[in-house]
Write a protein that binds this DNA or RNA. Sequence first.
RNA 1: UGGCAGAUAGCUUAAUCGGUAGAGCGCGUAAUUGUUAAUUACGUCGGUUUCGGUUCGAGUCCGAAUCUGUCAGCCA
Length: 437
Amino acid sequence: MNQTYINELKNHIGAEVTLKGWLYNSRSSGKLVFLQLRDGTGIVQCVVFKPANEELFEQAKSLGQESSIIVTGKVKEDTRSSIGVELDVTGLEIIQNASEYPITPKEHGTEFLMDNRHLWIRSKKQHAVLKIRHTVIKATRDFFDENGFILADTPIFTPAACEGTTTLFEVDYFDDDKAYLTQSGQLYNETTAASLGRSYAFGPVFRAEKSKTRRHLTEFWMVEPEMAYAHLDDVMTLGEGLIKFIVERVLADRREELTVLERDVTKLEAILAQGFPRVHYDEAVKILKEGFAKGELENDFEWGGDFGAPDETYISKQFDAPVFVHHFPAVIKAFYFERDKERPELALGADLLAPEGYGEIIGGGERAFDLEFLEKQIEAHNLPKESFEWYLDLRRFGAVPHAGFGMGIERCTAWMCGIEHVRETIPFPRMLYRLKP
RNA sequence: UGGCAGAUAGCUUAAUCGGUAGAGCGCGUAAUUGUUAAUUACGUCGGUUUCGGUUCGAGUCCGAAUCUGUCAGCCA
């Protein structure tokens, strides 16, 4: 295939190359037409000079936004260009001349852009977000692979809920059976960790929660590591390592995209220099109570409750790194959490709150070890015990202390990008009231 | 699921007390050998979400529905 990509043009100065792509925008100035060509790797300005080839000039002038074209020309150094090079066009092949492309370089509303998501992803900003998402995922995979974790994906069709059925999507599964789309691979991860020692799952999960906020999707991607012979502290150490690895990688590989997004990178750089604070739930409550006393919070937080979005934001504002909050009251956590030996009312769980109001990006903890305790918990949470027999086998055959967590890819990506809403961090977001395109 | 806000041209929007729906962008033509969301001139296209009510008269007031945004709960 005779094709050069725009991000390689610097290596071809003086040479004649063929670029294949789409017309991002065009301008003309008398005897000149400027074609902004994009090919997925970048955007380059292609210049057509009228006196050099009049027919070519007329063709270039006629092109609509997003027309698909193949351009041949000579690569020329030019300091006026943002990428340092331009193309002097000598040949143009029009694959399809598009007209009336709906997304113009001007401003549009959210609803319109979401309805045209299939086209919106061609825009510079969306392009940058998707590339950063790619890097977040690649860094995540590399981190676990390089630290002795084995990828062991868990099923998407599941026979029963791992935390009750109210927030599950139900689907028909042949004959009279029902299946549910998984909301977490966690219970299965515990089984693979018992086989492989350290394992992780990475895939889409589904939540039928009727949440309409900037942090929620009904379908999102989650990475879930699980470690045998591990405790709560190990979860926090692993989570901190993962986040720092991702931040480092994004800063190293996606500078250009962060610039397009006007991300304040000093905020990301700052977190690399320090350990993430680890705040006990009791202490977090104290911080919230002080916040209320100072008039900076509307509600007086009571010990025993779960944090709301304003609470999370307030806690994370006290630090300029992500913060772990640990030892939550057991009553607000799922049935499978291990308890604190000295204070059994506390669960050995830890959540990581991202800075700048991005909220919880990691949730995890140490899993219950004891068979009898788990059986009681399943009963207390009104869960059907027979569905969990296979899970309980883990406590019958070689039970070990083990721990793990889940990290949401979209929330992490939104934070890296510094964008408001997670809907832009996945090519086709699925949300309450939005299933198209 | 609840609170709040909104729905006017392909897009972004304006319209005072209830009285002729207006602009910018886009698109077309022309000018410009250096434009970066190009500019300038001329031109073109066209619209009050739906249903019902009040009124001489409704984009505007009232009621309902639908859709969207946003905040909250829950969560990653």
